[in-house]
Design a protein around this nucleic acid. Sequence first.
RNA 1: GCCGCCGUAGCUCAGGGGUAGAGCACACCCUUGGUAAGGGUGGGGUCGAAGGUUCGAUUCCUUCCGGCGGCACCA
Length: 656
Amino acid sequence: MIAITLPDGSVREFDGPVTGRDVAAAIGPRLAKDALAIKVDGVVRDLATVIESDARVEIVTRNHPDALELLRHDCAHVLAEAVQELYPDTQVTFGPATETGFYYDFARQQPFTPDDLVRIEQRMHEIVDRDEDIVREVWDRERAIAYFRDIGEKYKAEHIETLPPDEEITIYRQGDWLDLCRGPHLPSTGRLGHAFKLLKVSGAYWRGDPRNEQLQRITGTCWASEKQLKDYLHMLEEAEKRDHRRLGREMGLFHQQEEAAGSVFWHPKGWTLYRILESYMRARLEDAGYVEVKTPQLIDRALWEASGHWEKFREHMFTAEADHDRVLAIKPMNCPGHVQIYKQGITSYRDLPIRMAEFGACHRNEPSGALHGLMRVRAFTQDDAHIFCTEDQINAETVAFCRLLQSVYRDLGFDDVVVRFADRPPTRAGSDETWDKAERALTEAVREAGLDYTLNPGEGAFYGPKLEFVLRDAIGRDWQCGTFQVDFVLPERLDAWYVGEDGAKHRPVMLHRAILGSFERFIAILIEQYAGRFPLWLAPVQVVVATITSDAEPYAREVAARMNAAGLRCESDLRNEKITYKIREHSLAKVPIIAVVGRREAEQHTVALRRLGGSRQEILALDEAVTRVRDEAVPPAGFGPEPGERSVDCGSERSG
RNA sequence: GCCGCCGUAGCUCAGGGGUAGAGCACACCCUUGGUAAGGGUGGGGUCGAAGGUUCGAUUCCUUCCGGCGGCACCA
């Protein structure tokens, strides 16, 4: 007798060993038809798995949370079968499921073309329609190695050799095709369905190691239903529309060009956005007890040698020759500079913590293949700061930082933040007690700040544990932005100290921290988060005054002047164009508010406000309109426009 | 850095061994129009760079530069 416990708690008894298929059939014919796999005591297995003793069993159908991985993994197999049918000179390697689909890495002399992808996808659909049974076989290890070697699948043969000796070697056969695979799999290719699509072909290294051969990776997406597939493809389109490189150009925010690969030419509107963000951060940091500094771009290599960067980071550093054979490095980081400021004069324990912030412009020679719009550049500015404190202050500083970070993210439109906690790596500096202390301080602080965290074991820096802050954007993508690192090493290497209560010298701890990460990258994320439709306080141009007829020009100038005098970023559009044309253009430019003025408004001293995305207009007296828009445009930190930023004239103006 | 694809007007793209085309944008003219494209005319290109093949190269080949998609990298 075997007792099978189902998820609802009910128990079914069977005379002897049963397969998953039997269990599903015993529950109902519909379920037997829908079953893709079973979950035995929490482990997903093939439907054909024989259950020999009492167990908890769940039937996995298409809508089960575990089904997607199964479908995707099968889809990878179907891809591989299709490829080998069409291109027999191809060797297979690995083909796992991913978060949105699957890929399979192939070894083949000739590159796959986009046309090949179309053919392969067609063949995949045929294989699904053939509904080939998928059968698991256990093979003898030597036989498996010999088999794969004989048929010229050297990667598979090599892979088996690296598997642990006690691991069962399993083969999954579908139709005439087979693959080495741990499984589990669907009962037949027909169960996969047709909700998949091949997306691209790209390069990948065998076993992820650049010293190995380069393989061709075919990537696809796969879902439980056509609807899900459609939604996903729609999301991809949406992401493309939001692409900051496209919006950056369309909205006239910035450009990049080959003479300065990896750097940014900020245009007036983009730079306005940058400055707003910078002013906001400056206000928040000031409130949080930071002091701001500025350190040199060029520093003699001797300092980088002392800090350890020359040894560890040399290949990413740009250098410049100076007189007398001095080599200067363009700073890739701000920390050594901050330590130099810290070291001027004598620091008492009474002065700690010192929170030293810099909007530090850094340069790193990133590999050409890594560059990507504003997301990955060679010249960038960090919202960097280093907190010099005692070990006892780590906890309080961490809590304060987490709170500040959350509040900043919320202000900028991100509510969904997760924390990754990276603890001690195998090779590290500092004693175990120090690490214990630092790790404990960090985890407690994160909890105290009310943040959830996941462990990223062994991924801390060699000099201390770190927190990584990941925010999720409007279309579900994750971006690691904030970081908080405890450093016991740099103060030692650069000989920073303070005088303690006992009158003796002590080492301060350095906390490296950033919230945005880099302004460039964060602005890219902001552009994509808002799809260019910034909240009023961030919009480079907040209001455009658009005239209907030239009669209204003098009044339009007055309106714009009033808006600018109220600290708003307002432009006027006096061109000889129809109002519909102007509205279309400024709407496409994503200007939040268009103030339409015609003869009527000029006579009555009113404006018609039209919001981006809305079609209704609101007629207000000029005074009221200015007050209302000004109040709406107040930044979350409450900082006002700096005196120099307030336009005295009526701003830029287009006419003619 | 590695693999693949790409580079034609400011932008999006078509073309193709006999030195180039569209739409949008831009300029000028007409039009003064009430909430997402009014009409006309016109200017604009070393076809990414350098070499090679050829009577002739923007087109074919090689190298380089840059971009895109991944991989690797992101201390």
